[in-house]
Design a protein around this nucleic acid. Structure first.
Lengths: 208, 208
DNA sequence: CGGCGTTTTGAGAGAGCTCAACATCGGTGG
DNA sequence: CCACCGATGTTGAGCTCTCTCAAAACGCCG
């Protein structure tokens, strides 16, 4: 599976070539631990390939998943500003990560305010997107949730929505089962609210 | 209503006294618009009192809520890095906001890398918290969702969870109706999984 | 052509929502 | 000090909606 929306994925273009050069790759097998809570922080990671879960483990060994990070995402951004990791990172499949060492990144920020700004900008955008997604989850009815999704992701003309990846992916982004999403889309199409095309959905007049 | 968890609330301590001095307050009546999509950005806002909703409006005037911001939160952080707002901000009640002018904030970041870092740190932490909340919403069963909440919010000893505000607040943070939360807590207590006290919940052995 | 993942539709069950009633608590004013 | 009031907390009963499990059609790629 690949990232759905670019704005949920930290792009690494805020790092100068110099810092990118300092990155080191590491390969993990499924089940391997990238870092543990309490470990001294080494920096932030970009997931090149595979998938990691960030979990907090209680003393009985029970896991509470904080986040499942997919290829393309960065994790542990906050570790740049703290001395130790606050959760465990475990590969759920064979995974390749790229480490951007803390010292190099922070030095870059001090040297080049533009880089720091860019980083902050990326984070601010993520906060925005995440808040929006969270708001979406407050909507109970599948149809309203889909409407919300469509309303937020329409193009500039307010007519068509490009679907990233498969409908299954969209379903999981929406927090619905794929069956529920299919059914809902079918109903909306039957009601003349939308028109489905290959890879896009077109909003019809009744949606406005 | 007041903010529930500090980590979802941007604290303003990352701004020097100088920048804080440049802040201007503004009072809004319920229904007033703070800014509209497309407006030139003036800076980021702290909500001193009241409540705002950030919405995207389609041409038919229908709203899609992106976020409901409560007192204590900051909004429009991303506006520091873009030329225009990307949504409308409308007061849902009488509201007081504090504007931190873009120019002052950005100048501060250039002048003082520590300030920029602090800002990034706050944002990174918010991203973390929001990702965690979003993950939580993937849990269907009320009981498991409560368990997740408790597991993440236990104190250092892993025994007690301090409840911020009322149970109703917690319910809405969890995305449950308050009835569902009451029932779930009652069942968990009956099963000896937790013990309820005033303002806190204590995890019992069976929870570990 | 064969196989795998996506898309689609069906039927049934369960969990949480909704509506409703009541208890409890804290504050306010007579 | 007590009565009243609003908000919070609590429990009950029924219903709706989505999830789950199942099966089949479709589309793409080797």
């Amino acid at each position: 599976m690949q990232p759905l929306r670019n704005d949920l994925v930290t792009e690494i273009d805020w790092l100068s070539a110099a810092v990118r050069g300092a990155a080191r790759e590491r390969t993990l097998k499924a089940g391997d631990t990238l870092f543990r809570r309490g470990n001294r922080t080494s920096g932030l990671y970009e997931i090149v390939e595979g998938q990691l879960r960030l979990v907090r483990v209680n003393r009985a060994g029970r896991e509470a998943v904080l986040h499942v990070a997919m290829a393309g995402e960065t994790i542990a951004e906050a570790s740049l500003f703290s001395a130790s990791y606050h959760c465990d990172a475990i590969a759920t499949t064979d995974t390749v990560v790229r480490l951007y060492p803390k010292a190099a990144v922070l030095a870059e920020f001090d040297r080049n305010p533009k880089a720091a700004r860019k980083f902050a900008a990326v984070l601010a955008r993520q906060v925005m997107t995440l808040r929006t997604r969270l708001e979406q989850r407050n909507i109970r009815a599948a149809r309203d949730r889909v409407r919300h999704y469509l309303a937020i992701n329409v193009d500039a003309e307010g007519r068509t929505v490009a679907l990233p990846g498969t409908l299954r992916d969209v379903a999981s982004e929406l927090g619905l089962t794929h069956e529920a999403l299919y059914r809902t889309l079918a109903e909306m199409a039957a009601d003349g609210e939308i028109e489905r095309r290959k890879g896009t959905i077109r909003l019809l007049k009744s949606a406005l």
